[in-house]
Amino acid sequence: MSRPFRAYRLAVGAFFAVKGATLLVNALTFPRLRPRPTPPGGPRVSLLVPARNEAHNLPHTLPGLVAQGAHEVLVLDDHSEDDTARIAHDLDARVIPGQSLPPGWHGKPWACQQLAAAATGDVLIFTDADVLWHPGALGAVLHALERSGADLLSVYPRQRNVTPGERLLTPLVDAVLLTFLPEPLLRFPHPSAAAANGQLMAFPRRSYERVGGHALVRAELLEDVALGSRVKAWGGRLALALGGECLGVRMYRGYAESVEGFGKSAGSVHRGSRALMAASLGWHLAAYTLPWLLPARRLPGLAALRAAGLLERTLVNLLTGRRAPADLAEGLLGPVTPLLALPVYLRAMRRRVSWKGREYDQ
């Protein structure tokens, strides 16, 4: 066995060992929401939905949101070209026409800033139009917010993938969170120990206003993670939770849509560095794909690396509660996942990216 192969095996083995240890820590510590009744006499809650061309989602998601019994449900129609505003109005939400995008702002932060200005609740909960709210979800979120004492609670809804194309990349959102960020690390005050998910972000109003709201991240493509980091930099407390049975989401409706969505944010994840993106792609090819191209009979240890790459997504899905046979079988995609992600990296390396009909510089 050659020295280069021993070094390669050690490096990749250490990579999977660290990710496995992180996943184990999160299995023991990461909060999961459980349905709860809305507390009587609790705070006034504003449920806030930024919506741009969401006519295909709102008939499925807005009834569950309205049924939570919050003080108000506000939908900001961000210059939609479909029936977003009419559908939201017909489903008993208060519709706010979006103002024109000011210079220096990106679309979603501006939409959320307008929603916060119009809201009257003591708790502001921003939630995307594709998030499914099940009975007891609002009570669960409020309980987690109060118990954690957080200035920002962000929840990762359970992934709901319908078509085969959705399964190729979309579930990696959970894998990145649960294998790279140990939940106890959130207790450290440094802003780099942060994550957040714009699909659901809950703030006590006083905390949101004190930190400066979405104006803090007005020009960020990955505004949710940036806002989580800024909250910690301000000295606030950040908490995360898994949506469990309370909250679900169908983020993208196929492989092409996943590539477009992840390509919009991958540049920010890698701090805009094309060199870092190229290194990330190369490393994942080496860790997940290369073990299947090398001769296992002549190189001891490859079987363990192959097994680790196959098991990772399956174990993540078990932790998030995605336990149907098709969900668990997603682990078999491990060896080809870096190849499937190649278009995401190529898209993220462009100088400009597009999202929901708008273009942004990276």
Rank of each mutant, 00 (worst) to 15 (best):
L74G: 08
A118I: 02
L132S: 10
R44F: 06
R94L: 08
Q99N: 12
A119M: 03
D92Y: 03
A70M: 12
W105H: 03
V45C: 06
W110R: 07
T84G: 13
W110D: 08
P35H: 00
A140Q: 12
S100L: 07
G121M: 03
L124Y: 02
S80F: 08
R147L: 15
A116W: 00
E81W: 00
P109G: 04
D83F: 02
V75A: 01
L101N: 11
W105D: 04
A150K: 13
E72H: 02
T61W: 01
D83C: 04
W133Y: 14
L115W: 05
L115F: 05
I125F: 00
E146R: 14
R147S: 15
L62M: 00
L48Q: 06
H60L: 12
A70R: 04
H143C: 05
L74E: 04
S154V: 13
T84C: 14
Q68Y: 00
P102S: 08
A70L: 02
L138D: 10
L101C: 10
A137H: 09
Q99D: 14
V155F: 12
P97H: 07
L138K: 04
G69D: 00
R36Q: 13
H89D: 13
A129S: 15
D77M: 05
T127W: 02
D83K: 13
R36A: 15
A117H: 08
S46W: 06
L142M: 10
F126L: 15
L62G: 10
G98K: 04
I87M: 08
L115Y: 09
G64C: 03
D122H: 14
P59T: 13
V49F: 04
T38W: 08
N57V: 06
S100R: 08
G136N: 07
P97D: 14
L47K: 07
V45R: 09
A140P: 12
N53A: 13
H134P: 00
V123L: 11
I87R: 14
I96N: 01
P63K: 12
V45E: 12
Q68P: 03
Q114M: 11
D78W: 11
V141P: 03
A70Y: 03
A140H: 09
G69H: 10
A88N: 01
G98D: 04
D130V: 01
E81L: 13
T84L: 14
D128S: 14
A70G: 08
A118N: 01
